[in-house]
């Protein structure tokens, strides 16, 4: 069965500033979409608005998953319906190891948490996650790369229908990037996972090989195209592209607020 995430005319504000100004986007099972754009263009905001974080006020539009309206549903219900987000800055939860987290997530969906440990072990081996990261609280004093491996591990164990990957490439070296991207690609092939990958850089896309590339500027998708669009961006930069499409502002002013997921430092 094909699952379809449909974003239509989505407007959202934070602290009274409109950061999404009419976004239309559709991601179906097995497809890989890339969402590119300069810092402050609204990429992360889009992923959290779709996921239902309550810091944002949705002022217009709709987000549906197979026709079910997600706006108004709490985050955990959206996840239950098959959405997943790999966060740019995953949150440390001391004392809650990934196996406990995933056991609760599976049990919450009415599944059997009995198989979770084996699935975690299998994915840890595949993604080369050392055993100690399975016993510690999830993301607790993990490096950036370890966090991204753990996000990918959770993605693989939970097998959602649509995954939002928010800068999965940040903090990764080239080898790790390839490993994680290959795991994501395998999920799109084997489990028909649909992917919306947010990134600044074409590097991730050479591994993920997206079907479609969308460019977000100032809270709007200004153009979409095939993989060649990412290559064009590499040459012209966002400013060149903005000139081509007559976009005056690349980012929403003021830019996105201080990231609520940044490590608070204690």
């Amino acid at each position: 069965m094909t699952t379809r995430l449909v974003i239509e005319g989505l407007h959202a504000s934070v602290s009274g500033v409109e950061v999404l100004r009419g976004v239309d986007l559709e991601v179906a099972s097995g497809e890989v979409h890339a969402l590119m754009g300069p810092n402050g263009s609204g990429k992360s905001t889009l992923s959290h608005v779709v996921m239902g974080r309550d810091d944002y006020e949705v002022t217009a539009g709709s987000v549906t998953l197979d026709g079910t309206e997600l706006l108004g549903l709490p985050t955990w219900r959206r996840a239950e319906l098959g959405l997943f987000i790999a966060m740019q800055y995953p949150v440390a939860v001391p004392g809650v190891p990934v196996g406990v987290l995933l056991g609760a997530a599976v049990a919450g969906r009415g599944g059997d948490p009995g198989g979770v440990d084996a699935a975690v072990q299998r994915e840890a081996a595949r993604l080369e996650v050392p055993a100690e990261f399975l016993t510690r609280g999830v993301n607790d004093e993990f490096s950036g790369g370890e966090q991204k491996r753990m996000e990918t591990l959770q993605l693989a164990v939970l097998e959602p229908r649509i995954a939002l990957l928010d800068e999965l490439d940040s903090g990764l070296d080239v080898d790790a990037l390839r490993d994680l991207a290959q795991r994501v690609v395998a999920l799109t092939r084997d489990s028909q996972l649909g992917v919306l990958a947010i990134t600044h850089y074409a590097r991730l896309l050479s591994e993920l090989r997206p079907d479609r590339v969308h460019v977000l500027m100032s809270g709007r998708i200004v153009t979409s195209g095939g993989p060649e669009l990412a290559q064009q961006l590499e040459q012209t930069g966002y400013e060149g592209l903005a000139a081509e499409f007559g976009v005056e502002e690349l980012t929403v002013r003021p830019p996105e607020p201080a990231d609520p997921f940044a490590d608070p430092g204690f």
């Binding site: 955990w76 996840a79 239950e80």
Partner: peptide
């Protein structure tokens, strides 16, 4: 929020935390 994005309801998330 992090636990909720995995499909864990708020009460259960708080219990785990």
């Amino acid at each position: 929020y992090y636990l909720e994005t995995r499909g864990i309801a708020p009460d259960e998330a708080e219990r785990l935390i």
